[in-house]
Design a protein around this nucleic acid. Structure first.
Length: 503
RNA sequence: GGUAUCGUGGCCGAGGGGUUAGGCACAGGUCUGCAAAACCUGCUACAGCGGUUCGAAUCCGCUCGAUACCUCCA
């Protein structure tokens, strides 16, 4: 597929509007996404963001771009309210080495990303693996006059940066520096070392008891939270690259400070397009670890929670996410998931039926029918949806409508001659591409059938039932159907014989 | 308090000046040994009040409500 066939538009937080996407280098995309801080189990909100960017990554590749997707692992420098490093705190609480904590939750994070069937990024750098780069960046910032040292810590001079680069600070998050300072909730925190409350640390001197520390020209200490992303995006994608993404809640201060650091270090803006995913809500409130309003993916998958009526599988949850646009908040509810479960199963079943369809060229009467045109229009609609800021909801709606044609065809409610064989072939290809390559959905029903044993057994059973039905032996026929239902297999009788699905 | 976003039918959720979103649920129908599935039909909504316009759910203003951010968060 040629990228020129698509005029991809995306919503750029930097401009506050949708823009045509123009990569720096024809055919190539550099994308950086802020990854998780690995001090605790991932929660669903994280998952939504990474699923969203996974689909963006997949789609960019699908339409022909060569993408370098960098997503970091934050394993140092992220402070809690009381000033303790998140990693160090996690380690102290669990009596582990900080690296054990990081390793444990990194593995957990990767497992979860696999469960959601997301692709691994091209590069997944760790903050602790890039201390020299971060120290170098602090030095660059100091050299450009935007950093100052105070008792071994180094701070970014936001006021000066704002003065010399009017409008640069606050552009991304839509803030005005002066208002920010005046209205900030509690700017009276112990920040005596800073010249100005808006300044932020880029290097922090270790205090007694700190365990994650490195030597630097200023002190033994550790880098500031925002610095890692600036340093690692520069290292792997260059000083200026195409797309920078992350959750909406990182827009300020994290991303704003990132921009300032990059500009402060190299004099140029880091990313041309900033993409922000919206929050996953639970009970109409932001899902958040810190205020207890969250549900773990594990509990959602197992059904062991007080919030949902039953267990929901990973692909159902992913499908639920796809039903909404990534820039909208999404409220996780039992009803919503129930609807998603039905929708997901139907879509997968439709795909299975479609892939089994054998178009018969002899049925085709040679003319282009309304049905052909309708199906081709729906394919265009699905692509148009994705081209318009990755609108999975639109694409999904188009797939559902395509699915309606598939069933009509299978049920002989429309005649095979109404659809040209090449249209069927195209439908088969595109439908499957959307489900597997673009959305990254897996058919969970077939997951335990890798060697075909179940298929073989089912064929035999349905064969016996068919024979019984031909002899109008309803008790046997119904016994088979009820027995299968008891183990979660639904038998569906159609015009062309019976099929089955596993719930 | 400041800033932003949003308020869509029973539920979830797209869209965004005139033309069906889609899914789920519900009702009726077709098919079927029965059922399920599938298909068809119905339910046609945009918080409230003003304004702009030939025309507004869509643009503007105000009101109400919700959410998010304002140096912990994806």
């Amino acid at each position: 597929m040629n990228t020129t066939e698509h005029n991809l538009k995306l919503y750029n937080s930097l401009k506050g509007q949708k823009e045509a996407f123009k990569p720096l280098h024809e055919g190539h995309v550099g994308m950086y996404v802020c990854g998780p801080t690995v001090y605790y189990d991932v929660h669903l909100g994280n998952c939504r963001t990474f699923v969203s960017f996974d689909i963006i990554y997949r789609y960019l590749q699908h339409i022909g771009y060569q993408v370098r997707y960098v997503r970091n692992i934050t394993d140092v420098g992220h402070l809690t309210d009381d000033g303790e490093d998140r990693m160090a705190k996690g380690a102290r609480v669990a009596q582990l080495e900080p690296m054990e904590v990081a390793q444990k939750y990194t593995v957990g994070f990767h497992d979860m990303m696999r469960i959601f069937n997301t692709l691994p990024p091209s590069i997944e750098p760790r903050a602790t693996g890039h201390i020299p780069e971060q120290i170098q960046m602090v030095q660059d910032i100091i050299e450009h006059g935007y950093g100052y040292e105070r008792n071994g810590s180094v701070y970014f001079n936001v006021r000066k940066f704002d003065r010399e680069n009017p409008g640069a600070y606050g552009k991304l998050s839509g803030r005005v520096l002066d208002e920010l300072l005046a209205e900030s909730r509690d700017n009276l925190k112990s920040q005596d070392e800073k010249n100005d409350p808006a300044d932020f640390a880029i290097w922090m001197k270790a205090r007694p008891g700190d365990i994650m520390v490195w030597k630097s020209p200023w002190s033994v200490g550790f880098p500031g939270w925002h610095l890692e992303c600036s340093a690692m995006s520069t290292k792997y994608l260059g000083q200026t690259f195409d797309i920078h993404g992350g959750g909406n809640d990182l827009k300020f201060p994290h991303h704003e400070n990132e921009v300032a650091q990059n500009m402060g270090a190299c004099g140029c803006a880091p990313a041309n397009y900033w993409l922000h995913t919206n929050m996953l809500l639970l009970n109409s409130k932001k899902m958040s670890k810190s205020d207890g309003n969250f549900i773990t993916p594990q509990d959602l998958f197992s059904g062991e929670n007080d919030l949902m009526s039953k267990a929901y599988s990973p692909m159902v949850v992913k499908f639920f996410m796809l039903m909404a646009h990534y820039r909208s908040t999404l409220d996780l509810t039992d009803d919503g998931l129930l609807a998603a479960e039905k929708g997901y199963r139907k879509l997968m079943e439709t795909n299975k039926l479609l892939q089994q369809l054998q178009p018969d060229a002899r049925d085709f009467d040679g003319s282009e029918s309304d049905t052909d045109r309708a199906i081709l229009a729906l394919i265009d609609e699905a692509y148009a949806g994705m081209d318009d800021d990755f609108n999975t909801a639109i694409a999904l709606a188009a797939l559902n409508e395509m699915g309606s044609y598939v069933h009509k065809l299978v049920n002989k409610q429309i005649d095979a001659s109404e659809i040209a064989p090449w249209v069927i072939e195209r439908l088969k290809t595109i439908f499957n591409l959307f489900i597997t390559d673009i959305f990254g959905l897996r058919d969970e029903a077939g997951a335990d059938n890798a060697d075909g044993t179940v298929d073989g057994l089912m064929e035999l059973i349905l064969d016996i039932r068919k024979a019984a039905r031909e002899q109008k032996d309803w008790p046997t026929s119904d016994k088979i159907r009820d027995g299968l239902a008891a183990v979660g297999i639904a038998v569906k009788d159609g015009k062309e014989g019976s099929s089955w699905t596993k719930n």
